[in-house]
Design a protein around this nucleic acid. Structure first.
Length: 387
RNA sequence: AACGGCAUAUAGUCUACAG
């Protein structure tokens, strides 16, 4: 049983959740009783694969088979819920942990903080930081990194910087994750200069810079309309020993060009990444589509959409369609926009409020008042509330 | 007391109005 549990853990580590679950079931079929460690391991495998429902089921199964989950088993489930964005259930489970008289650990709090971070709720994250001190759990670097990350969505760089300063007071050394989280917070705050300053500080430290930090900085430049700096960083990343640009680097750089109305540069970067042997994903394509759309290059946008349809393992998603519809709208191609709408529905993609806004805009720009109103009706009958 | 299980960072889409 111990051996099987170890095998389950190995599957979890290798990100093979199906095999972990299979092993778990075979174990039971052979009359073995997975212990709490084995259960935690298989739950962790589900966590990595975003299978929170399975994780919750396994916890229930564990209880049903007479094994009392320990705090680490709960932590595994909480992590799965946090990763999947199920804050409500996570909080319920946290209440249960306390009712059971189990002591939450620093791991427990990290998952809960991540839940609030997902929702951009930095205030709740900071309250948890306070709660953990009160309950005698010492915050660590992961706790602080999670809290800094919770400041990102709201762009509360001030709060993030206070947390960073607290680390120094506590004599906790920041790591590359701390810096990346700060850089991303700068991005959302529109502070690209500060983002670059943090990247420089990271490079000057004895920490190892990685792609994530660079990518976050590229995105920060992009949001600040610094497309040239974004591309410079991409080049610098290429030239850095041991690092190489990945799909995130390129998608961020393409998006930077898009924001700065540099559609040709965006498309060039898309081609460049292919030449370098990277496989652009739907995000790279839709960023490039959006770049063309904004520049009135609707035909080019349509061509890129076509490549997305033809590409190996690629299919246009909601955002790709929306971006292309917007391009048609701007170029007064309202009929093409409506065709794209029909196509996406046929593909089983549910249009959202942005889809309808773009379509209505397409009709509006082309003075197709009737069609615009009929879309508004269609929107409401599809259960989408006009904003 | 030890052993197999737990947490943190990066990218894409719309409109009007105001500035």
């Amino acid at each position: 049983s111990f051996m099987w549990g170890t095998a389950v853990a190995a599957c979890a580590r290798a990100a093979r959740w199906e095999e972990a679950v299979l092993l778990h079931h075979e174990m039971k079929a052979r009359g073995m009783r997975p212990d709490k460690v084995s259960y935690s391991a298989v739950i962790t495998a589900c966590d990595r694969a975003l299978k929170w429902q399975v994780a919750v089921e396994l916890l229930q199964e564990m209880i049903a088979s007479g094994i009392m989950p320990d705090i680490r088993a709960y932590n595994s489930v909480l992590s799965a819920l946090a990763r999947a964005g199920n804050t409500k259930l996570a909080l319920e489970l946290f209440e249960r942990v306390k009712r059971e008289g189990l002591n939450p650990t620093v791991f427990t709090f990290a998952s809960l903080i991540k839940c609030f971070a997902n929702n951009g709720d930095w205030k709740q994250a900071l309250l948890l930081l306070e709660d953990m001190r009160i309950s005698g759990v010492e915050p660590n670097l992961v706790t602080y990194n999670s809290c800094i990350s919770a400041c990102e969505q709201a762009g509360r760089l001030d709060v993030a910087q206070n947390l960073f300063n607290e680390l120094e007071v506590l004599k906790i050394r920041p790591d590359v994750i701390t810096y990346s989280a700060l850089i991303s917070t700068c991005e959302k705050a529109g502070e690209w200069r500060q983002a670059l300053a943090y990247l420089e500080a990271l490079k000057a430290s004895n920490l190892k810079v990685n792609e994530v930090a660079y990518n976050a900085a590229i995105a920060a430049c992009g949001r600040g309309y610094q497309w040239r700096k974004a591309i410079d960083l991409l080049r610098e990343l290429s030239d850095t020993e041991g690092l190489k640009p990945d799909v995130y680097s390129y998608s961020s750089a393409i998006a930077a060009c898009e924001r700065s109305q540099r559609w040709q540069d965006a498309v060039d970067l898309l081609e460049e990444m292919i030449q370098k042997g990277l496989i652009p994903n739907v995000v790279c394509f839709s960023s490039a589509i959006s770049a063309c759309s904004k520049a009135g290059q609707w035909e080019f946008a349509m061509k890129l959409l076509q490549r997305l349809r033809d590409g190996q393992g690629l299919t246009p998603d909601l955002i790709a369609f929306n971006a292309c519809i917007t391009g048609c709208a701007r170029s007064l191609q309202w009929e093409k926009a409506l065709e794209l709408f029909d196509e996406m529905v046929k593909c089983g993609i549910s249009p959202d409020v942005i889809t309808f806004n773009s379509l209505i805009n397409a009709c509006a720009r082309a003075s197709k008042v009737e069609q615009a109103f009929s879309l508004l009706k269609k929107m409401e009958s599809s259960g989408i509330t006009p904003n």
